[in-house]
Write a protein that binds this DNA or RNA. Structure first.
Lengths: 236, 236
DNA sequence: TAAATAAATGTATTTACAACACTTATTATA
DNA sequence: TATAATAAGTGTTGTAAATACATTTATTTA
């Protein structure tokens, strides 16, 4: 069998931008590298691709290592390949972003990696080009969530409309009219109102909702229009 | 300086899905490989990444090799990394799609590669996973062109509204009302009506339009809504 | 029992979209 | 030279969606 003799071969990594929402702020999960190179610096969770796995599986493996989670929403973001992005040796990285329910995240696993959640507004200087990756992931999340119902992935099984709205408001850094927001969300028919209320964040309490999972699965690529006057976007 | 000793390194390629529009049909440019492996089979134009270039530059280089064109619309599509996608040796590929004005395309250059334009409905069996790449590129083009003014990139400097409409209709495999289409396109204010007409495709003749390049550059990421009832999309 | 807090809800207006048909310019032909 | 054929160009009206906006309700605490 012929081989590609003269070409040079490159290290291939996968890095994950992991989003979580704590009820107030959108955050991403970072680790503190405790090995050289770049020991002690904050970084995205990542790793080299192994001989038998594709990118999707590599991303899932890395996510699981850090969070203990499987089967969560994950999507290829972009391949980063600047020749000097890793000064030690040329490495390309295929970045993925994941949306997880922050409550399911297993702290004991992540402590091996010294992981910490950082609010998007307080991301520290990261190794290599990881800050670029985070920026691109934010843009993609904004873009996509404006038209597709993916932000539910960040919420627990039961959540309230005010919670959902504050998530949207955080991502788009603006405020919506709650009457119009509620109407738009309800019009998707993706939510099922529960009988119990969340009493923690207000006196009156807000009704819980759950995803209608059948409908949700069928409508993952449905096209919504949740953001008023979507004149917001810089890039795809 | 520390190195990543134990990891294995992989061949990294860039492949290009090159779209062109001949006035009637949307086509892509394929080459006939005249070297082993897979000699004689149809393939996307591609090549290995070189030591000093990033993906964008690699994609641009490959596009230029085949078409002689520079500075055209080009966008990273997806990184393909299935372990067996190239049976000869593990190779990952970062796919790009390009939109070119088919008239500018230089035939003499491409003859070195035995290139041919294929209508999207008649794509032959391609090497490796190139058919997957083409499918994904079509989906992306559909999705993106439904909301962003990028299809102008496929047309010559001067074009008519009927030409533009038939391009949209081809991509979305449907027909639009020409009055509504015209109104939507005009509302973008991206087009400048010329004084001369194209007399080739009708007796009455259709006015030429040109892009307002200033506005176009400023509105590349503008959000339109050209397709009626956009219930069309399978994926991002 | 009064005050404070946040949730829930309805309506009127404006805007955007979709559906629809006739007139015009030109060329070819009877 | 009048007529038919062809495709381009244009306007209006009804309907649905989006927006703007204020009051009532449930509950807790003082």
């Amino acid at each position: 069998m012929p081989k590609y003799q003269k070409q040079f071969r490159i290290l291939v990594a996968v890095d994950c931008i992991i989003f979580g929402f704590d009820g107030a702020e959108l955050k991403i999960l970072l680790i503190k590298r405790d090995l050289e190179p770049e020991k002690g610096k904050w970084s995205l969770m990542g790793g080299f691709i192994t001989e038998k796995e594709n990118f999707d599986r590599g991303g899932a493996r890395i996510l699981k290592q850090l969070t203990g989670l499987e089967g969560v929403y994950m999507e290829q973001l972009h391949a980063f390949g600047h020749p000097d992005r890793d000064p030690h040796e040329r490495t390309i990285s295929v970045a993925y972003f994941a949306l997880i329910d922050i409550n399911k995240f297993e702290n004991q696993i992540s402590s091996d990696f010294h992981a910490e959640w950082f609010p998007l507004k307080k991301i520290p200087k990261l190794v290599f080009d990881h800050n670029n990756m985070v920026t691109k992931a934010r843009e993609r999340l904004r873009y996509k969530s404006a038209f597709h119902p993916i932000l539910f992935e960040l919420l627990p099984e039961k959540f309230t409309l005010p919670q959902l709205q504050s998530l949207y408001e955080g991502i788009f850094d603006t405020e919506f009219d709650k009457r119009n927001f509620s109407r738009k969300i309800q019009s998707t028919k993706l939510l099922v109102k529960q009988k119990d209320k969340d009493k923690e964040s207000s006196k009156k309490g807000a009704y819980y909702y759950k995803l209608d999972k059948r409908r949700y699965a069928a409508n993952l690529h449905a096209f919504l229009n949740i953001i008023p006057n979507p004149v917001i976007f810089n890039r795809l």
